[in-house]
Design a protein around this nucleic acid. Structure first.
Lengths: 110, 110
DNA sequence: AAGCGATACTTTGCGCCTCGATGTATAATA
DNA sequence: TATTATACATCGAGGCGCAAAGTATCGCTT
């Protein structure tokens, strides 16, 4: 029982952060770390493939900028990405309620 | 973004159900389905490998019984399994709070 | 008797995805 | 020059849920 609960969730977290405004990879990890109360420290190995997947699925689009002599790749959520994000948030809540129900925690389903 | 949030969670769900009393595979899936409000319909392909993993890790132990001419394999939680379950429940709550924090849902971390 | 559905368990392969590691590149600092 | 910070890319290993297929027994129906 050593697995991480993160599996399958990273894309949702990324979308949520980017939905609040265009952002680039490194800064996104900072935002996720902050908003999760220091709980989620996303690794490059999963971060960038996830961003690329989301872009391939047309949920995100990207553009390169230059900042202080360095390149940055910003991502922004597409219109269809917004709809998908809303659906996934709802799915996550349903999922979480289900887990609570099984674990016997407060807030589980009746 | 087609992945399931269930990844990494199944073992926790199984342990939680079995912690309430010894049970066998088929009945465990029924219990999970009921306690989750119909949300989690565990498949054999993940159920049994997960039970076997937990047993291999000494968190569960099993024994065969016969019921109405059919065999049944009951699982019960070991002492170390109980400790591990408690830890994992706590980890899950921490995880869920983290997700809430990133998604901007109620109950997330400050 | 044969077929089907329910009950119960086992196993395999596929596809997905995070982690850890490695590498590239630029700027600033020691 | 070497190191650290910033920023992105990619690969392979390992884990794991899903779908499918298979075994087996019992009870019911035709």
């Amino acid at each position: 029982m050593q697995s991480s609960f993160l599996n399958g969730t990273v894309e949702l977290l990324l979308m949520a952060v980017i939905a609040d405004g265009p952002n680039y990879g490194y800064e996104i990890t900072q935002a996720v770390l902050a908003r999760s109360g220091g709980r989620f420290d996303l690794k490059e190995g999963s971060l960038y493939p996830a961003l690329h997947r989301l872009e391939r699925e047309k949920l995100l689009e990207s553009y390169w900028t230059e900042h202080d002599g360095r390149r940055r790749k910003y991502y922004k959520v597409t219109a269809v990405g917004r709809k998908t994000l809303a659906a996934r948030r709802s799915e996550w809540q349903t999922f979480a309620d289900g887990v609570k129900g099984v674990l016997g925690l407060e807030g589980g389903p009746a």
